[in-house]
Amino acid sequence: MPREAEPSLNEKQFVLQALQDSIRLDGRELEQYRPLELTFGDQYGVADVTLGKTRVLAKASAELTVPYADRPLDGIFNIATELSPMTSPAFEVNRPTETEVLISRLLEKTVRRSGALDTESLCLVAGQKCWSIRVDVHVLSHDGNLIDAACFAVVAALRHFRKPDTSMEGGVLTVYTPAEREPVPLSWLHSPFCVTWSFFGEDGDIAVLDATWMEEQVSSGSCTISLNKHGEICQIAKLGGVPVEAVSLLQCTNVALIKAKDMSSKLDRWLTEDAKRRDKGGLLAELSAENDRVPDI
């Protein structure tokens, strides 16, 4: 079993000592994120997010199923997170590690429990037919702060995703193929983002945003705040043993709101850019593709 490489004593000591002087190894400020990049795939609902050397791919998909018996009016929504050996050879297939469990729990709380996706709109025939939406999160490269990157990827993928159009006529449910009708976006209520603080030192008095893998290895605790651009907090998860002052936690939340607003506007911009890119030629291209018309000249 290949072991995960642990940083040496020298590295641990140095990182801590440098952070005491507010120096980070990559020259960032304590509250500065690494450059965040997002690319959409050719298909709807594929989002590839890079945050420095961390890279996460999220893919949304939909299928028709029967709703759960106890929730006949709701559709189904799931987020699947699995860390493959691509992330690091120390991860094994089908053997969840602590990191993996933590990420999936946090994503679940942030996106699913906060009601970001309107599950009622996924129901087609009460108790009989509904959409099941699934997001697969693939971590391609791990250099710290997986949670923020994964959450951003999930939200981006879901907002970019289009599900097949449907219609109900006289009790007959029709699902249209993409060739018949353009697929439709999901009914999306709000976009939550995760902002993770890492705490260093014995009293956790140094707080750092967007920790790298090396910094995560020496941190004494972390706190993930999930919130949307309106400042509505979905959850706060405080992990690791170190106690943190309530006042500094409040301060953290305030900064988190600024970061969430920033991420939100970035995502909006990328979504519009992608929509423009897809609309090249607009309606005309679509018509000519399906109905090979002969021009009347």
Partner: peptide, 23 residues
């Protein structure tokens, strides 16, 4: 020793004439 190759599929071409039934 071990040489580990992980292949992650990102995109597959869509068949516009069929709705995928299964996730």
């Amino acid at each position: 020793s071990l040489i580990q190759i992980v292949l992650q599929v990102e995109d597959t071409p869509e068949n516009d004439y069929v709705n995928t039934k299964l996730v």
